[in-house]
Amino acid sequence: MKSLRLLLLTASFVLGACQTFSITNQWRDPSWAGPPANHVVVVGISRSDTMRRIFEDTFSQHLQAAGVQATPSYTQIPPGGPGAVPLRDLVKGTGAEAVLVTRVQRVEQRINVTPSGPMYGGFYGWYGGAWASTPSVTQYDVVTLETSVWDARTEKLVWTVTTQGVGSSDIPRVTTQLAETLIPRLKSDGILQ
C-alpha cells in the first residue's frame, strides 16, 4: 500500500477522458500467480470530486455487469486529502482482492492541418483553385491515461496499462469506453475473474 499511497498523494492531474481508446503500453507482473480478483475497489485520481465520483460509479457499474464486484473509493475516502489509511480500511472492510486506479498521465495539444488541393484543368483552373482552396485546421487534446491494478493481499502492482484517446468532457460516455476496452483485457490476462 506504500506505493499506492504515493500514487494517491502525488497524482495531481484532473481525471480527463477520451472518446476512443487505444492501448499504447501494457505490463503484467510475470511472477504474479493470482488468483484472479472477484472484488475490486475502483479509484479515480482527480482534483474534481464530481469527475471522480462519475468515473468510479461508471467503471464500477461496468465491472459489476461483467460479473466482478466493485466498490467506488469515494464512499470512504474524502476528496482532496491523503487517502491511504481510509483506502486500506475500505479494501480490508469490503474484502476486495484488488485495487484499480486510473489517473491522467499527460495531455498533449495537437493540431491537424489538412490541405485542400487546387483544382486542375489547365493552368488557369489550377491557379484559380489554388487561391480559392484553404486548409482545414483542427485543434484537439490527446489524453494519456494510466490504469493500474494492485493486489490487495500483497500490496504489489500486478498489471498496468496506458491508453490514449481524444479528450472529451463527457465523463460517463468515455468511462464506458475505457471500461469496454480494459475489462475484457483484464479478464483475458487473468487479473479479473
Score class of each variant (00 low, 15 high):
Gly67Met: 03
Gly67His: 09
Ala70Val: 07
Thr71Arg: 11
Thr71Ile: 05
Pro72Asp: 05
Pro72His: 11
Ser73Asn: 06
Ser73Ile: 05
Gln76Ser: 14
Ile77Glu: 06
Pro78Trp: 00
Gly80His: 04
Gly81Cys: 01
Gly81Ala: 10
Gly83Arg: 12
Gly83Trp: 05
Val85Gly: 06
Leu90Gly: 14
Val91Tyr: 00
Val91Gly: 03
Gly93Leu: 06
Gly93Pro: 05
Thr94Phe: 02
Thr94Asn: 14
Glu97Thr: 10
Glu97Phe: 01
Val99His: 06
Arg103Tyr: 00
Val104His: 03
Gln105Tyr: 05
Arg106Tyr: 00
Val107Asn: 06
Val107Tyr: 02
Arg110Val: 01
Arg110Gly: 01
Ile111Asn: 08
Val113Leu: 10
Thr114Ile: 13
Thr114His: 12
Pro115Trp: 01
Ser116Trp: 07
Gly117Pro: 05
Gly117Ile: 06
Gly117Phe: 11
Pro118Leu: 03
Pro118Gly: 13
Met119Phe: 04
Tyr120Gly: 12
Tyr120Leu: 12
Gly121Pro: 12
Gly122Ala: 09
Gly125Lys: 11
Trp126Ala: 14
Ala130Gln: 13
Trp131Val: 10
Trp131Cys: 05
Ser133Ala: 15
Thr134Phe: 15
Tyr140Cys: 06
Val142Gln: 11
Val143Asp: 00
Val143Thr: 14
Leu145Phe: 01
Thr147Lys: 12
Val149Ile: 13
Trp150Pro: 02
Ala152Ile: 05
Arg153Ser: 08
Thr154Cys: 02
Glu155Asn: 14
Leu157Tyr: 07
Leu157Gln: 14
Leu157Ser: 13
Val158Ala: 03
Val158Thr: 08
Trp159Gln: 09
Trp159Ala: 05
Thr160Met: 13
Thr163Leu: 00
Thr163Pro: 01
Gly165Phe: 01
Val166Gln: 13
Gly167Cys: 01
Gly167Thr: 03
Gly167Arg: 14
Ser168Met: 05
Asp170Arg: 10
Ile171Tyr: 07
Ile171Gln: 07
Arg173Pro: 00
Val174Gln: 12
Thr176Trp: 01
Gln177Trp: 02
Gln177Leu: 07
Gln177Thr: 12
Leu178Gly: 07
Ile183Pro: 04
Ile183Gln: 05
Pro184Ala: 02
Arg185Ile: 04
Leu186Trp: 13
Ser188Gln: 15
Asp189Ala: 14
Asp189Gln: 12
Gly190Ser: 06
Leu192Asp: 04
